[in-house]
Design a binder for these strands. Structure first.
Length: 399
RNA sequence: GGGGAGAUACCGAAGCGGUCAAACGGGACGGACUGUAAAUCCGUUGGCUCAGCCUUCGGCGGUUCGAAUCCGCCUCUCCCCA
């Protein structure tokens, strides 16, 4: 334990919303320094979708910081809990996931987490390890540790009750399962998003009932997505770890001005002073830097600069991007050519002819830079490559 | 177990025998403006061999010239009572 107490507390506490209890944290960190025993810091991720997004990186970055302080990270891959589905923040019953879904998602999850965490120093556990062998009797015993009154006082359930939305009994089990994970791995601390506080505290309760010291619970802010709502894959407003550099950069450039400060503190390594200086300048510059920083952390500086460059050329200078995908003239096309709307569909630039028709009528389609207005216009196979632009972003060269 | 209410397009929500591919709002998409920000304005929002045709209103059957609208059964949800 090289860092001193104050330094450790500063790192752990930065950007944290809830901390239960600060005093216990001080005690345990001090104890850890004294005995040389790293703290066991638990974090759980349910493989409910195939990709992680930058919202996940907020707690992951905190874990990395703690890892660098020498603490031990236990990453719980919630393959058992994923099938129950965390009701936190949900206003609907979710469709159940199958084992197969979970397995598929799980593969990419850990790998993606490795973009932030040092996996060689991380203990990774699946919670099916202890949930699969459980007997019904054990489950009942666990259920006995919680009351219905306590469970339904949660906001998320209150809201559903008010809206006459269904609540599955199994959803009540979720917090208990997550809590039981803590008992099994004997965590000293558990981290989660602010919506996780209830679940985190269940772990603390259960550990105490099992004669362990209750874990310290701390939460990091949830980050808003591109549209200002909570970032979530299912809202389609997320920046994913796996987004291509250009895409990632572009998505970040479209965030609301108001969220930049949060993104700077939660998603970049820039100091508060640096961020403040950037935010004091022109918002576009501040956002460009933000986009660059974040893109850089997933794809490296070179890719980030390249993304920045091509973004500027395309959107600021309104040039045609340098790398335009080439598409072959549809083989099925008759010799006299295709109507514009069919062509767009055949090329895969629009999902349906009707959609293509609408886009053309709405003035969203250009051929060689010229706005088209007639979706029924017949386009013959071009002699020279034809530049097709659909909306602001989609380009293709057809030959 | 008994009684009541309900299931409509991405979401919310009208419609209650023809004029319904289905009002309205949100979202999304396209356009204008711009900093691919916000706000605002305009347009679009089932599919197709596209001035026409085809498939949609929880599922399956039925009544009718004609059903999202009426009837029967089924599935699911909510509420009240037990």
């Amino acid at each position: 334990m090289e860092a001193n107490l104050q330094e450790q507390l500063r790192v752990v506490g930065r950007g944290v919303v809830d901390l239960i209890e600060r005093k216990e944290l001080e005690e345990r960190v001090a104890e850890s320094i004294r005995t040389g025993r790293p703290l066991r810091v638990k974090f759980g991720m349910d493989p409910t979708s195939p990709d992680l997004h930058v919202g996940h990186s907020v707690p992951l970055r905190k874990l990395r910081a703690m890892q660098q302080l020498g603490h031990h990270i236990v990453l719980i891959v919630g393959d058992a809990t994923a099938m129950v589905g965390d009701p936190s923040g949900r206003n609907k019953l979710r469709p159940p996931l199958s084992r197969a879904d979970v397995e598929r998602n799980l593969r990419t999850y850990v790998e993606q987490a490795g973009k932030v965490l040092d996996l060689s120093k991380t203990e990774i556990r699946r919670n099916s390890e202890w949930f699969d062998p459980m007997r019904f009797e054990d489950v009942l015993k666990l259920c006995g540790r919680m009351t219905v009154a306590r469970m339904i006082e949660r906001d998320t359930f209150q809201k559903r009750i008010a809206d006459n939305e269904p609540i599955g009994i199994h959803e009540f089990l979720y917090p208990l399962m997550q809590g039981w994970d803590s008992v099994v791995v004997k965590s000293d601390l558990e981290l989660g998003g602010t919506d996780q506080l209830f679940n985190l505290l269940r772990g603390r309760d259960l550990q105490r009932e099992e004669g362990q010291r209750g874990q310290i619970c701390f939460t990091t802010p949830l980050i808003n997505g591109l549209d200002g709502r909570k970032m979530s894959k299912s809202y389609g407003n997320a920046v994913s770890f796996n987004d291509e550099p250009d895409d990632m950069y572009g998505k970040i450039m479209s965030i609301e001005d108001g969220v930049m400060r949060d993104w700077y503190t939660l998603l970049t390594d820039l100091s508060d002073a640096e961020a403040a200086a950037l935010l004091a300048g022109h918002p576009r510059e501040a956002k460009a830097r933000l986009a660059q920083e974040i893109t850089c952390s997933y794809h490296g500086l070179e890719a980030a600069l390249k993304a920045r460059d091509s973004f500027d050329r395309r959107f600021r200078d309104k040039e045609v991007p340098e790398e335009v995908p080439e598409l072959a003239w549809p083989a099925s096309a008759p010799p006299e050519g295709l109507t514009l709307m069919s062509l767009l569909k055949e090329l895969g630039l629009c999902p349906s002819t009707s959609e293509a028709k609408r886009l053309v009528e709405g003035g969203g389609v250009r051929l060689d830079g010229e706005v088209q207005s007639d979706p029924r216009r017949v386009v013959a196979k071009p002699a020279a490559p034809l530049l097709v632009q659909v909306g602001k972003r989609k380009f293709a060269r057809v030959r």
